[in-house]
Design a protein around this nucleic acid. Structure first.
Lengths: 329, 329
DNA sequence: CTGTTAGCGCTTTCAA
DNA sequence: TTGAAAGCGCTAACAG
């Protein structure tokens, strides 16, 4: 099967512990010996057995990512970025798409060094885990250290911006259901802004969707555009919804931003593939993954020991202004 | 840290080898003892250490999936399905999104039982691997056992179907570049069908795209619809393109299938989120994952030993008829 | 600088 | 039916 350090030792004519040291670049091995050993290792296609190594050293240098929502694809850019960052720290990233509890169990069996949970389901899960867990934007009162976006502020900023452009009739399209904390935050931000900016309120100002996919946005916008009062601006709770809403607007022969201004909640660097470059609010993806990586590393190195372990770090959203909003007389 | 069998042994007042046997449900342990041990294990939240277990047993019961194209999201449904199937076989699935070579190395270090590569890049990679590899639709002449869709036939069927509906002017929108084997197959299927069905050929019959995303389809279709001759039917090489093409068609105030018939290459069970239920050709997703799982299990159990290891299994595409094509006088 | 040795948590003979 | 012991591949003292 796989090549072991003993094979290398034999081939190099040294003891296998010398090989171990050489491969870990220990200063306890003479340079030429080291070189020879490494050379032989490469030649033999040696790959260290993680199992054996982590058994003795109690470190696997791997992070497990729990990603049961793979089909929604929402986090793929985040995961790519994290993977890269962790690699720079010498960590390998492994992903499980199983249901959260199952995935946590799996990573516990693997004794990974930490687990990162991406699961925006509304339930507050808890799974016994001897491996430390970090979560991204989960529950109201999380059981583990959490990095999250200040969604309330994000939507607030969006409305405030439109208001400063002179908009009076502003709608929100998003998930209005009570049970999803993440979405609820956004709704609260909207309400707060309407209040603070002294905007007019009207029935149908907040438009619910059935889900967060493109199609849901399409349906909601179709409805809205059929109604008598069409707002001058729309704030949208999520990326995919925006695509659908845009589609509906185009079908109505309206255009953005001439007839209607639009701003979307989003973390993705650029909404490139839309016809119009979009204005968005949200925390830039790289800011999120940087903080997430930081928290993971701190957690592994026990820097979090004394601090409260279940604190939430809220990241500040930023306006990203592009061409989908226009000022109003 | 984690609970070990020794902890359980102490708590149960037996030797740790007895615990090991009990947890593996060995008939060598008396029923009541076994029950007691299992009970204690659960109570203590015991999770077997995969590292230790696979070190001695030379089996990890895990499959590594190489998925560097995570951002394209194209395979997420496939992966979900495979994960489920493997679970039924007692296997855990772990995913790496690193570049193919790196990911293969990682899984070799973990000594997983097999590696499944999802990487539709055109290059023929080869990485030394002592772990057996299975690929999904990769190269023309793959180095490893491969499951693939007969793409040529798929597109052929699509054209043939439209032809039987009476269509004469049929276009293909897809990747026409020479270097991508997978896409080339489709183009060949189209050409073959045009020939066999004795369809008229015309310039601009095959429309290239710059990529395989929604936006690329949008751009290509916009172009097509601006031209003088608009085909009565379009065959599309890929799912996401279809979404973009549909968008462009709507913007041109044409409708499907009244003005134009459309059929798309696709494996995904339903293209639910489109406004019109779509006709597609392709191998049903579950058929693909069933075969893939089968090949993986065979590979692990060395059933493939004598057969040629690098054979390709081509799966038969099927027409899935829905409402996006109409007959022509 | 290099080699010897113990032991990580577990499975698997072999003895009792 | 249970326990003792060897050993998987590796790291980390310790001895030479």
């Amino acid at each position: 099967m796989g090549v072991t350090i003993k094979d290398i030792a034999k081939s190099a004519g040294v003891s296998y512990s010398t090989v171990s040291k050489a491969l870990r670049d220990s200063p306890l091995v003479k340079e030429p010996t080291k070189k020879r050993i490494i050379q032989i290792a490469n030649q033999l296609g040696y790959q260290p057995n993680v199992a054996a190594r982590s058994l003795v050293s109690k470190k696997s240098f791997t992070i497990g990512i729990v990603w049961p929502t793979i089909e929604r694809a929402a986090h793929s850019a985040l995961i790519t970025s994290i993977n890269k960052r962790l690699e720079h720290h010498g960590y390998t990233t492994l992903i499980s798409i199983n249901e959260t509890r199952t995935a946590i169990d799996i990573f516990n069996r693997y004794r990974v060094d930490a687990i990162l949970v991406f699961d925006d389901g509304p339930e507050r899960y808890s799974s016994p885990s001897s491996v430390p867990i970090v979560t991204y934007g989960i529950a109201e009162d999380p059981l583990y250290p959490t990095v999250d976006v200040n969604r309330k502020k994000a939507i607030f900023y969006a409305v405030d911006y439109l208001c400063r452009l002179g908009h009076k009739k502003i709608c929100y399209i998003g998930d209005l259901k009570k049970r999803d904390h993440l979405q609820k935050e956004k709704v609260e931000g909207f309400k707060q802004a309407v209040l603070d900016c002294k905007l007019e309120t009207f029935s149908g100002q907040m438009i619910p969707v059935n889900g967060l996919e493109q199609y849901d946005g399409y349906v909601a916008a179709k409805d809205l555009l059929r109604s008598e009062v069409i707002p001058s601006a729309i704030v949208i709770g999520s990326h995919d919804l925006t695509r659908g809403i845009l589609q509906a607007i185009h079908e109505s022969e309206l255009s953005v931003p001439e007839d209607i201004s639009i701003i979307s909640y989003d973390n993705i660097p650029e909404m490139n593939n839309l016809v119009i470059p979009f204005s968005t609010v949200g925390v830039p993806l790289e800011t999120i993954t940087k903080k997430l990586t930081e928290v993971l590393m701190d957690t592994i190195n026990n820097k979090n020991k004394d601090k409260e372990m279940s604190r939430v770090i809220y990241l500040e959203p930023k306006l990203h202004i592009s061409q989908s909003c226009r000022p109003i007389n």
